[in-house]
Design a protein around this nucleic acid. Sequence first.
DNA 1: GTCTATATTGCGATAGAC
DNA 2: GTCTATCGCAATATAGAC
Lengths: 203, 203
Amino acid sequence: MDIDSKEQLLQSAIPLFADYGFDKVSIRQLAKAAGVNSALISYYFGSKQGLYQAVINKQLSGLMAFTAKTSQTALDPAAVFRLYAATMLELHTKNPYFIKLCYREFITPSVILDDFAQNHLKFVFLTLSAALRQGIKSGQFKPDLDINSAVLLWAGMVNFYFFSQPIRSRVLAEKEISAQNYMDQTITIFLAGIQRRDSHDKE
Amino acid sequence: MDIDSKEQLLQSAIPLFADYGFDKVSIRQLAKAAGVNSALISYYFGSKQGLYQAVINKQLSGLMAFTAKTSQTALDPAAVFRLYAATMLELHTKNPYFIKLCYREFITPSVILDDFAQNHLKFVFLTLSAALRQGIKSGQFKPDLDINSAVLLWAGMVNFYFFSQPIRSRVLAEKEISAQNYMDQTITIFLAGIQRRDSHDKE
DNA sequence: GTCTATATTGCGATAGAC
DNA sequence: GTCTATCGCAATATAGAC
């Protein structure tokens, strides 16, 4: 419309790209949803692909939240994992289209994700593995952990809840699992699973 | 070529659909890869969509392996989870295109996946949750587990290894995580995480 | 900045010869 | 069963008026 057609295009493209994928949505649909003319897509973003990349970029920037929070203060190892789960829960709750949009990118990464992996995801990985190492050193966690595997499976546990959402309703029918319960369980099971058990316990 | 152009089309379509997705590959590409004429796609499968569904159907049938194995014998609860991890590892190793092909379907399920969820995945879920319940009853596992959450996060841990493969190489660079190590860690951490700890321990 | 109208391309499907 | 040739359609991108 009058004010900021560019932002309007960017916003209304989110559910369309998420639900139908890049190829199954036309520039006419995108323009119609935004209430503007389809020629404006090329005008503002160069091409349909340009609009798509702008959408993905904006979505990925939401992942920076974890990085931002952890770099502020020194945290107890267990608290780092709790913060990760809480941040992911908040991100997906605030932005329900994140999962569909970004996980398509994860399966077939483009250059846009390449950069993001190098610059941001690497840091997330380092933060989590540093927390594990510190916990091992302090005697909280088992000394024989495979750190890389543990970080990866932790991320898998947390994120699978959102990823499995479309299929879950079909498998579980009525009994929906609450996101908060799920996150509590991941934290409980993961921390209990990596905790040192023999001599001097710490909670 | 001469013998079984249909099977040839089906086989060569796997990497193309996996790598590029349904919309980004044309019937001409599919035909060229199979060494046959593009008209044969309609002849054998009715349409490009028909070929795609035949490919997905064949891939999903690989998941039946777990169902088949568990229904044969009564297993110790922990052994059910070990069997699940081993079966998934074998499936993905034998068929490296499985993850890309099927996870795209998982994000935006079609009718083809609807049926599969109802008929097969539901059974997988029931098998895993029955194992958890049995373990709780026998005192091996913590009595206060949220069973549905635990089953889900277990599946997430195991499958995230394959899902994260494309992005992992970009984040971790040289240090690749071996699939066997990863599976061992999921089993160790998950079982330790759900194991009863106070009074009478087992294992 | 925003629109209409159109140029151009590439697609899936199929009719019909062999 | 397999091919060639082609039809008809829908898509993106853009030139040019306002």
